[in-house]
Amino acid sequence: MSSAMSKRLEGKTILITGASSGIGKSTALEFARTSPKSLKLILTARRIDALKSLAEEIKSEVGDGVQCLPAQVDMSKPSEIVSFVSNLPAEFKDIDVLVNNAGMVRGVAKSPEIDPEDINVMFATNVTGLITMTQEVMKGMSKHGESGQGDIIMIGSIAGREGYPGGSIYCATKAAVRTFTDALRKELIATRIRVIEIDPGQVETEFSLVRFGGDKAKADAVYKGVEPLTPDDIAEVVVFTAGRRENVVIADSLIFPNHQAAATVMHRKS
């Protein structure tokens, strides 16, 4: 017997950015497992081989009820995003749920020693890319019914709520996402488009590995003495928000592991 959430999600088309790993990959799997009878997943990232592998994994686990469209998209390039959305196959054009998950961080430098290229790529990916994707997808959502319908789900961060040393640029990008999301929710108040923000605390993904330029020892040290959240923990919340009754908006969520109370306040076991 299908759950109420499964039935609400049936037949929907869901676009997930940054789906090749981490929270994005887990979110795709969680959607497929929750509503395996009739679902369309558009999976985007820069690593197309990883997306194709994910599509095969979903098919082998849940069968043919979930259709997957893997697509290589670089979120730091607005023109690429516009072209991608406008050229979606007809059967995938009618997007019901956008999960803006793609994001990245580089380095731990403090001002005035932050590399300008790091600044540019973080803002291009985390802010400009996210806004561009949102606007392009919204053009389709606005045609749903009299006032438009759909879900825009932003994966933010505790970093968007409080800045911390060595993370000023990343924090600034996530604060921009948070402010954009808040304004967007108010702009769309007369529509049936739900605007949802989910802000994770510490989650163990490739995030730290990218931040430290592939230095695994440094990345592993971030999680020493703690039990961080997993991508699956956040994916379950994403799917839960999308699976609510239309009149229910989980507008704003902050999710910590048990040892964390703020961006830099954590209890580490010796």
Rank of each mutant, 00 (worst) to 15 (best):
I16V: 12
D49E: 14
L15N: 06
A45M: 03
V73E: 01
S6Y: 06
A55W: 07
L43Q: 01
S21Y: 13
D74V: 03
V62I: 04
K12P: 04
I14L: 03
D49W: 04
V62C: 03
L15Q: 03
P70E: 01
L41I: 04
E61K: 12
S21P: 09
A32D: 07
T34A: 05
D74L: 05
K59R: 15
T34S: 06
D74W: 00
P70Q: 00
I42S: 02
V66P: 11
R47N: 10
S53Y: 10
D49L: 06
I58G: 01
A4N: 15
P36I: 07
L39I: 08
S38I: 11
T27V: 07
L15G: 00
L41H: 00
G18S: 05
G22P: 08
L39C: 11
A4T: 15
S6R: 13
L69E: 02
T27P: 07
G22D: 01
S21E: 09
Q67N: 15
T27C: 11
E56M: 14
V62G: 06
I42F: 01
K12I: 10
I42Y: 09
T17I: 01
I14Y: 00
A50L: 14
I23C: 06
A71H: 08
A4P: 08
E10S: 15
E56K: 14
A28H: 01
A55Y: 08
A32R: 06
D74Y: 04
A4V: 13
T44S: 00
A32Y: 06
S26W: 07
T44W: 01
K59A: 14
S21K: 14
L29V: 13
L41F: 03
S6K: 09
P70L: 00
M75N: 07
G63M: 05
A45G: 06
G11I: 05
C68A: 02
K59D: 12
T13F: 03
L41G: 07
S60F: 08
Q67R: 13
G22I: 01
A71M: 10
S60K: 11
I48E: 01
A19N: 04
L51P: 03
